[in-house]
Design a protein around this nucleic acid. Sequence first.
DNA 1: ATGAAAGCGCTAACAC
DNA 2: GTGTTAGCGCTTTCAT
Lengths: 337, 337
Amino acid sequence: MVTLAEVAQHAGVSASTVSYVLSGKRSISAGTRQRVERAIRELGYHPNAGARALAGGRSNIIALMIPLRTDMYVPVMMEIAIAVATTARIHGYDVLLLTGEEGPEAVRRVTGSGLADAMIVMDVQLDDERLPLLRETSRPSVLIGLPSDPTGLTCVDLDWTAAGALCAEHLAQLGHRDIAFIGEAPAVYERHTGFAERTLDGLRSRARELGLRVLHRPCAAGYDAVAATVTRVFDERPRTTGFVVQNESAVEPLLALLRQQGRAVPEDVSVVAVCPEQVAVQASVRLTSVAVPAQEMGRSAVEHLVAKLDGRGGDDVALIAPELTVRASSGMAPAVH
Amino acid sequence: MVTLAEVAQHAGVSASTVSYVLSGKRSISAGTRQRVERAIRELGYHPNAGARALAGGRSNIIALMIPLRTDMYVPVMMEIAIAVATTARIHGYDVLLLTGEEGPEAVRRVTGSGLADAMIVMDVQLDDERLPLLRETSRPSVLIGLPSDPTGLTCVDLDWTAAGALCAEHLAQLGHRDIAFIGEAPAVYERHTGFAERTLDGLRSRARELGLRVLHRPCAAGYDAVAATVTRVFDERPRTTGFVVQNESAVEPLLALLRQQGRAVPEDVSVVAVCPEQVAVQASVRLTSVAVPAQEMGRSAVEHLVAKLDGRGGDDVALIAPELTVRASSGMAPAVH
DNA sequence: ATGAAAGCGCTAACAC
DNA sequence: GTGTTAGCGCTTTCAT
């Protein structure tokens, strides 16, 4: 293993000079810099991460807590995680993957040991048990998600309330009066997951203002569960002409079921999804949708975090404005006979 | 920040005693142990990760390289990643998330800096450019996937060749003679991704032995792409009665298309999928399938890695035997008229 | 613009 | 069963 001292010797300079060449924290003459860089290359030197962390007081690692639950749309999680890792590298950080399993204890372990300099927390519940710890730690953190009380925290999220409202507006404009909201799995609501409840709230309150009737049905994954849900919807509200879906695994089953029942989309029934662009575009009917900007969320979270680590920027809530894209799945409500 | 020295002082013992209480590397009298543990608790002590890594020569971190490509079934990747993280924690390791983006350079950076003690590599191509580095590094590694030449490497994978063969056997037994294999996206084959090519090979060679005709069609994600593929299949081979699908995003579209064309599953056409159990069970027709044991793969990879870190176990290839579960999507080939 | 040297907090010989 | 101590490889004052 090559050490800084060996590089220094090889280059004929002192250890501190090598260190400063690496960090750029003081000016180095061109000649010295070149000799050092050459020595580094020739010896294949890589600074030791542990020594750096110990001496420098920072590990250059960001912890990312992802849920280990599998009842939510996984690709979104994955896309966020990858965006986080990619963006972090750009800023010189590596990413430590923590699953929700350890719970709040993981926060203590990672921050207490200096394993990570900061952390990003996903799958935030409205009243998340990790929040007190995050607030009291000296280490910066960013939530991807918005709890009930974001005081003293930095949050990055899609404005789900606005997203729900957008869906209601779109369907109202098209003349729909009875709409059904196919939501995430029941467990997601039972945990009071922020995004799910906010979307519902946003949809409901805008719907009320616009005179829409809304039937909300959480929906487990699987074709059968979707089938049961859709059947119940039409039983309870036969005049339903609009669907809002926030559950990627229900999208394709829903479209297949409507087809089977002889209900044409969008002539008889309109469908608006809240999902990643890719899902909307690849569905069997190109879906009118509010995009979930997973990459943007991951990237933004890292950038807020890096800003805090650099002493710039403080606590705030950064909500991304939702955008609804009209595609082939929504149209005028059918005339009432 | 609480240090080991402070704990030692508080407990009235020496630093090394505290260290040994923590590591369990030498016997400690019950009394001493208790006083130390009490001091640790009272002071809220957490060993500094950097100092540990420096002094101990090991970081207790495992690096996990995941692809950042999005053309393969993401939930499987995610499930593996989560299984890796969970299993790693059980063995006292944390997981560092590396995206494929940095390529082979990431291997050098992480192993060279001592950031990670070992690494797990996913999305292995038959002739992967990271392999030479992994072979020459002193740090242990495990591949999830099987390259052409696994010499000097430890690999964990499903036996995809056997999986492909199983599918052929099942359909042959049911009397099918013309089968179509809907595969992963074209890019996956162009990269020579191990699992995709091996499944194809296994299917093809067993099919040849059994007198089956196989039409292989890679298939991009999205309903339209699947529709085009299926149409071409029946154009070229009108007597196709069996489908093997290794492409999760094509599963539901395929079933929907067959339904639309009035082809009943399994009366007219049988479908066998190679996918996670969950997908097979939740599809609109419960699918006969060969399970992709994502969790098992992640867990096994970590256990092999930990064995190597502990000086137990050396290089070997651990292939998981595939299992085919018969469900509702496969049946006797229709009689020929 | 560069060097010397004092730690950072822990582990693991080496003592007893 | 416990204490003493010499590093681990780097960063960063303090000097010049």
